[in-house]
Every structure is written in C-alpha cells, then in structure tokens.
Amino acid sequence: MQFELDGRPDAATLAAALRPLDPDAQVALDAGNGRLDVVTSASREQVATALRQAGYGVSPVVQELHVSGGSTCCGGCS
C-alpha cells in the first residue's frame, strides 16, 4: 500500500512508527516526492493512524506506482 506524506519524511522514523503494528513491516520511501510504500500485515487505516501519530499528514494513494526498494507488482505484466 502507498501513501503520500506531508512534511519531511524520514524512513527510519516511519519504520519505527510502524514497528508496533508489524515488526516485519517493510518501507520504501521516495522522500523527494513524499511517497511511501509499505508492505505489512496491518490494515491501511492502522498504518495511516500510526503515521499521523508520528506527526505526518497522510493521504492514501489511489493509483500506486513503483517506489525504489518496494514493489506494487501484481504479476500481470506481459
């Protein structure tokens, strides 16, 4: 799942915010564009709430894009 973040996101801070939800959560951050890709067992709302509590403005991304280090691949490409 992907989110757009306001502010100056830091991958370490974001990962720490998500660790209580899912210790195995993986994040890939495109800091220049404020886009975060999260691979986790937590729900979209749980992730958004944790990110807001960490001080970020959060908007779920409707059309997800590949972020360096993460994957939105569904396996359907030819």
Rank of each mutant, 00 (worst) to 15 (best):
M1Q: 09
Q2E: 13
Q2C: 06
Q2N: 06
F3Q: 01
F3C: 03
E4K: 14
E4M: 12
E4T: 10
L5Q: 00
L5Y: 04
D6W: 06
R8Q: 14
R8D: 12
R8V: 10
R8K: 15
P9M: 02
D10V: 13
D10I: 12
A11R: 13
A11H: 11
A11T: 04
A11E: 14
A12P: 00
A12C: 02
A12N: 13
T13A: 15
T13R: 15
A16Q: 14
A16R: 14
A17W: 03
L18T: 08
L18Y: 04
R19I: 00
P20M: 01
P20K: 01
L21M: 10
D22E: 01
D22N: 10
P23V: 04
D24R: 15
D24C: 05
A25F: 05
A25P: 02
A25Q: 05
Q26R: 15
Q26V: 09
Q26C: 07
V27G: 06
V27T: 11
A28L: 02
A28K: 02
L29Y: 00
L29G: 01
L29I: 01
L29V: 01
L29C: 03
L29H: 02
D30H: 09
D30S: 09
D30F: 05
A31Y: 03
N33P: 02
G34K: 01
R35Y: 13
L36W: 01
D37E: 10
V38W: 05
V38G: 05
V38S: 07
V39D: 14
S41E: 12
S41A: 13
S43R: 12
S43C: 07
E45C: 07
E45L: 12
E45I: 06
Q46G: 11
Q46F: 09
Q46P: 01
A48V: 06
A48K: 06
A48F: 02
A48G: 10
A48H: 02
T49E: 14
A50R: 08
L51Q: 05
Q53K: 14
A54M: 01
A54Y: 01
G55V: 09
G55W: 09
G55Q: 09
Y56W: 07
Y56T: 00
Y56G: 03
G57R: 12
G57Y: 07
G57V: 00
V58W: 06
V58C: 08
S59R: 15
S59I: 02
P60R: 06
V61N: 04
V61L: 11
V61K: 03
V61S: 07
V62A: 14
Q63P: 04
Q63W: 14
E64M: 07
L65A: 15
H66N: 11
H66R: 15
V67C: 05
V67S: 08
V67I: 15
S68F: 14
G69E: 04
G69F: 03
G70K: 06
S71G: 11
S71M: 05
S71W: 11
S71E: 08
C74S: 12
C74D: 13
G75D: 00
G75F: 03
G75S: 00
G76S: 15
G76A: 14
C77S: 12
S78P: 11
S78F: 12
